[in-house]
Design a protein around this nucleic acid. Structure first.
Lengths: 263, 263
DNA sequence: CGGGGATTTGACACATATCAAGAGCGGTGG
DNA sequence: CCACCGCTCTTGATATGTGTCAAATCCCCG
């Protein structure tokens, strides 16, 4: 995957995810609830399950929710009862302190799970907010857990999903604890790029769904610093930035920036 | 639980954990492997299980490992096959970058689980190092998962343990992303205090098992800054520090420091 | 009892935050 | 359709918290 790959080869995901028939009949919502025909099945919880197991799993998901930009999927303190799988769109999760300070703890895109923070305390410990019009599959935890009792593979997949979240957060700790602004921004862009690529989008051109302030919050920087770093990378010809549109021009240099020691 | 509580009322945990009989017969190691008689059972994975379920669970644990200070339980890149429950002692987990920079991602004490980062990648993504002579129960993941298939309560407990780890890491992200050095140190001390208290030790007096440098790495600070903050808290009469020995003198002021906005 | 790592403390440097002003853009309503 | 409003973003000047470098002391461990 080179930095010069064009947009053409990456079809928008939402189109691939919905079978043609569904588009024609207009019965999109009905068909799309089935994991077996969902374009995300290899990224999402059913990843690696056999067809019969997926059939069992998809019986779980009898609800989907559509959220408009800015709407909240769940809030801090809400009773936990479901995990959510992002079907389309982009989410952020945010923790808040009494004094108003906020920390964005993650950005979440299609195929990723939301809400696992709620399992132990049985109450959500952050807000999940849609950054664009979007849709999630609602997976009632009690049913997921029960089904898991009869379905080893599903149980293992769920463990893996939680483990991945733990590993991701270790990475963020490393970033926040030891890296400089330039590295944080470079890694942020590279990670986004990889995630878009995994979903069939261009790794070199994409739209940021979040504001500079949200990026800053996630990376432990002020929004002015985020803006300055974007400008600097642009001056150096590493990326081009136009509002929310990012174009990675020199992947190699960006990768170097992502691992340049303070020294 | 006040800050003036004396040490007397908190017996060392290892004594409570081992039944008297075992001490007398010398058959400590044998008996102590059984969860049902382990003083940690309400903090550890078997928490909330009924006696019969604990019996099933403890069959899993046919190995324990003793590690001396400085020894490594597992290393980055090691094949994952077990989760570990800390039985006694103190561990750190560390991630490393190619250029040598390190991030301590956690400190772990009795009753806490180690190794869940390995489930998804099937390889460990950090090192786990004993900070003092210590002992862990080895829980083979394959067997844990199989047993979980037949034992709902155990499965739920395991989910909760992973969820707790996710929530803990969210907290660290908040700390690293938005807080100043003074707040980070205060929260670090308060959190340690609570964890000691939960284990029957004094919340106001304890020994740090890690160096200033390890604390700094965990909190995203240099060790000189950690040292200066300790000195400052001491000057203000909030704590007293003698080498690794910490005494919390004014819990209220420490709690205020833990939530004092930059402003 | 000696040696080396850990810790403390001071002086100074620097990366990022803060404060401020203005420009750009998108959405809304007349 | 255009004009306005508000939010986001950019950029500059300056402030400051924490890092860096250095030296002295401590004390743990062999």
């Amino acid at each position: 995957m080179t930095a010069t790959a064009t947009l053409q080869q990456y079809e928008p995901l939402t189109r691939r995810a919905i079978p043609l028939l569904a588009e024609k009949t207009g019965n999109v919502s009905r068909l799309a609830t089935h994991c077996s025909s969902c374009g995300l099945k290899d990224l999402c919880l059913p990843c690696g399950l056999r067809a019969a197991e997926i059939d069992m799993f998809e019986d779980l998901i009898y609800t989907r929710r559509r959220l408009k930009r800015g709407e909240t999927l769940y809030r801090t303190g809400d009773k936990f009862d479901s995990i959510y799988a992002v079907r389309s769109g982009f989410y952020k999760t945010v923790m808040m302190l009494d004094d108003g300070r906020e920390q964005v703890t993650g950005f979440h895109m299609a195929g990723e799970l939301l809400g696992m923070d709620g399992i132990a305390p049985e109450i959500h410990s952050c807000d999940a907010v849609a950054l664009e019009d979007s849709e999630v599959c609602v997976i009632p935890y009690a049913r997921l857990a029960n089904l898991g009792d009869d379905n080893q593979a599903l149980q293992r997949q769920f463990h893996k999903a939680m483990s991945r979240e733990i590993v991701r957060e270790h990475g963020v700790m490393m970033l926040l604890g030891t890296m400089r602004a330039e590295e944080r921004i470079a890694i942020f862009l590279l990670t986004l790029s990889q995630r878009f690529a995994a979903r069939g989008y261009s790794p070199s051109q994409f739209i940021l769904r979040m504001t500079r302030e949200e990026i800053g919050s996630y990376l432990g920087l002020k929004f002015e610093t985020v803006s300055r770093m974007f400008s600097r990378f642009q001056e150096e010809g590493v990326i081009s930035v136009q509002q929310k549109h990012i174009h990675i021009l020199d992947l190699d240099v960006l990768q170097e920036s992502a691992s340049r020691k303070p020294d």
